[in-house]
Amino acid sequence: AMTADGAGAAPRGSPEASLDPDHLYNVLFVGDSHVGKTSFLYRLHADTFNPHLTATVGLDYQIKNLVVDNKRFALRLWDSAGQERYHSITKQFFRKADGVVLMYDITSEHSFSDVRYWLSCIQEGAEDGVAILLLGNKTDCAAERRVPTKEGERLAEEHRLMFYECSAASGQNVSESMVSLIRLLKAHEDKLKNKAEEVPKPPQKKKGCCW
């Protein structure tokens, strides 16, 4: 019961999917410490901003149900610790992920330059063709911006990533980016399904325990 609980409730005003979703995706949130991964998830879940959320240690997770294009989706959202010390735990999870949200802080150049490090982790650990969303968080802190939108766009283009700037504090682009990610995940799933129907089923990589 512990696993399915977490954050079942949807934010106000957002359509709630029923208990039995049509599609279930594992989405892993990565990025440097303090870029706002937990705050983003808190906004998605409770539609408010909490400036005093404690640092994530190891992994945390919640379930988010959404209806997109008349289909019910359940997202299993894995929140990871940003500190490098915990990366060996996080890395185990790349294999499980259908999608990865890679977040940086637009007020921190360091967090942006670490995006390349995180991409290499994804490349190393995740399944080929995993859906990746690059998110530049904290657009509400416009005065302290250090990473221009253009740079984020350029990086996303170079690596063919979906890209948004957002703010967990104001709520800007929080649901929008998730809906886009869902569409991407769905398209990816459909493509895999079609492929599977054409050729004899390839041996699937074993999913299961994370160590």
Partner: peptide, 12 residues
């Protein structure tokens, strides 16, 4: 069955 047998949610 819920893909949580590794008890990762107990890490913290």
């Amino acid at each position: 069955s819920q893909d949580s047998g590794s008890l990762c949610f107990c890490f913290r």
